[in-house]
Simulated scan of single mutants.
Amino acid sequence: MAISCYCSLWTGSRRVITLWIAVRTGGRVAIQGIILDVDGTVILASKVLDGASETLDILRNRGYKLVFCTQQNQDSDRKLSDRLNAAGLQIYEQEIVSAGTVAVDYLAQNHRGSQVYVVGADSIRDRLSLAGLKVLADRNGETAEVVLVATDPDVNLTRLSVAAEAVRRGADFYVTSLDRGEPMADRIIPGPGSLALAIAYTAGRRPVVLGKPSPAMVAAVRDRLQLPSSSIAVVGDQPAQDVRLGRFLGATTVLVMSGVTTPEALERTSSSYRPDVILPGIKDVPAWLDLNKQKQPS
């Protein structure tokens, strides 16, 4: 069964684009857990989005299990929680599943004791060392058995060249996400995806993605929620990351138009990335959940 309605959104040119919203309810059990993206969903440019804090309170008070799934890889989950709390969002460390933590855990489980070269910030190097990996410096990075690419505010040509040579020699090649850019305080720097692309193009090999929507991230959020896929909703602002994550989980997918996706871009989105539900923003999620609950099969 599908409930259909239409939603009109203003574009920058003041033109109205009408989007079809389909709430698929047939055969689904009630939503019990919600996976929420962070950037573009609850915050944008370090500012809390309208209604985000109140919405999280509503969802918790109604008993929904929440997980915040983010491509962030510099801060530990504890530091990210502290930063979000300082911004005005009550998000607990145990509710966060970040690409950085998934990457560290994955390498610790599959490459413990290996020599790894990191294109990334000092913080993720430190976390890898604590997890039992031998992090190499630039001078001997070409001999690495594993290369990991993450956000790197201090990246330079030497670091990219060393990583490319290690990959060319056969090192296992990973990237925390395919994000093209990372917003900093005063500028946007190339994201892990852009850095990995330069290395891949030079070395002639593609990286394995460990962030959204990879199997490693799917396993991490599934383990955290401990719920059937049919009772999970994934809410985010990017079809290629958040909607695909939901598809791989077998969950209901909800796209919010508060982040990077424009109505025009959504119209061009591949059918395999189309969400089940489109909402203006996070504050509209409780009303959608009410509608979804009313339409559950008796």
Rank of each mutant, 00 (worst) to 15 (best):
M1H: 09
M1N: 05
I3V: 10
C5Q: 05
Y6V: 13
W10M: 13
W10P: 09
G12D: 13
T18G: 04
R24C: 09
G26C: 08
G27C: 05
R28D: 00
A30R: 00
I31H: 01
Q32D: 01
G33Y: 00
L36T: 10
V38E: 04
T41A: 01
K47H: 12
A52Y: 02
S53P: 03
S53G: 15
R62Q: 15
R62Y: 02
R62F: 06
Q71F: 07
Q72I: 06
D77F: 01
R78V: 12
S81H: 00
I91A: 00
E93Y: 02
Q94H: 12
I96N: 00
A99T: 01
D105C: 01
R112T: 14
R112E: 15
G113R: 03
V119I: 13
V119G: 07
A121I: 04
I124C: 06
L130I: 06
V135K: 08
R139Q: 11
N140Y: 04
N140P: 02
G141W: 02
A144F: 08
A144N: 05
V149Q: 06
D152F: 09
P153K: 10
D154P: 07
L160Y: 13
L160W: 05
A163R: 06
E165K: 10
V167L: 14
R168W: 05
R169A: 14
A171N: 06
D172C: 13
Y174V: 13
V175Y: 15
L178F: 10
R180F: 11
G181E: 14
P183E: 13
P190I: 10
P192F: 11
S194C: 13
A196K: 12
L197S: 15
L197C: 13
Y201N: 14
A203I: 11
G204K: 10
R205A: 15
P207S: 10
L210N: 05
K212V: 05
P213I: 08
P215T: 14
V218N: 05
V221I: 09
V221R: 10
R222T: 15
D223L: 07
D223T: 13
D223S: 11
Q226Y: 00
P228Y: 04
S229E: 03
S229L: 03
S230M: 07
S231G: 03
I232F: 01
V234L: 09
G236H: 03
P239T: 11
Q241V: 09
R244A: 14
L245K: 02
R247Y: 07
L249H: 06
L249T: 02
T253L: 09
V254D: 14
M257K: 08
V260D: 13
T261D: 00
T262V: 07
E267C: 08
R268Y: 08
R268M: 13
S271C: 04
P275Y: 03
I282D: 00
A287W: 01
L289F: 04
D290K: 04
S298F: 03
